[in-house]
């Protein structure tokens, strides 16, 4: 009798667990949407201050679209390779997961490298975060996106340790699915950044 109850409990637990996974993803999705509001306020700030140069350097003087095109390509391809990671999960092939996760991470690091170079380059030429309202808004917006990318890279590193320890467990798959949402979301934000900040900035 007790044995049957125990067995039933396990079954129910399993069933509940299955539902929690969907809830976790929906919850993470709602976090991402709240992050959209954060970026929306930064974009609004940027738009409002978009011509407040305090007589200093303007984006037309500094922006190099070739670099931005490079950054865009890196982030877009990393979004694609994260898709390949999720295909590896579907096929239960942990080797595919590791390989494409590594490629994604390398592309992400390269993106951050170019962005940091750009920041130091601009600051060196006299357009630092304190130079004018425009540049404050620029560093706040683009820097926040960069910080998110950095967080995503840290998360990837942590997940690799989880995978090495537990393999493709259900919990790990849910974690990876959350990170996948996050990474694609960062690419969507970058579309807005390169369109509004860089392309419109040099025109």
């Amino acid at each position: 009798m007790t044995d049957t109850t125990f067995h039933n409990d396990i079954q129910r637990d399993d069933h509940d667990h299955h539902d929690y996974d969907g809830d976790t993803l929906l919850g993470f999705w709602i976090y991402i949407l709240s992050d959209c509001i954060l970026f929306a306020s930064l974009f609004a700030t940027y738009a409002v201050l978009s011509s407040s140069f305090a007589g200093g350097l303007t984006p037309k003087d500094l922006f190099d679209l070739k670099l931005v095109l490079g950054e865009t390509a890196l982030l877009l391809f990393s979004s694609f390779t994260f898709g390949l990671v999720m295909l590896g999960v579907q096929r239960k092939c942990i080797k595919t997961v590791y390989i494409w996760l590594a490629v994604t991470a390398v592309l992400g690091v390269a993106f951050l490298g170019i962005e940091l170079y750009e920041f130091f380059h601009f600051s060196h030429l006299g357009a630092g975060p304190t130079s004018s309202a425009y540049w404050s808004a620029f560093y706040a917006l683009v820097g926040t996106h960069g910080l998110h990318v950095f967080a995503g890279l840290l998360w990837m590193a942590v997940l690799v340790f989880h995978f090495l320890r537990d393999g493709l467990s259900q919990t790990n798959i849910v974690r990876l699915s959350c990170l996948s949402l996050f990474w694609h979301f960062l690419d969507v934000i970058w579309i807005c950044v390169f369109s509004v900040v860089y392309l419109m900035g040099v025109m």
Binding site: H18, D21, L25, L84, Q90, K92, S177
Partner: peptide, 17 residues
């Protein structure tokens, strides 16, 4: 197979990506 795709998760294919 059900377990690999919890509710609300991505159901991608190489073609789609």
């Amino acid at each position: 197979d059900n377990h690999a795709n919890p509710g609300g998760a991505a159901h991608g294919s190489l073609r789609q990506y």
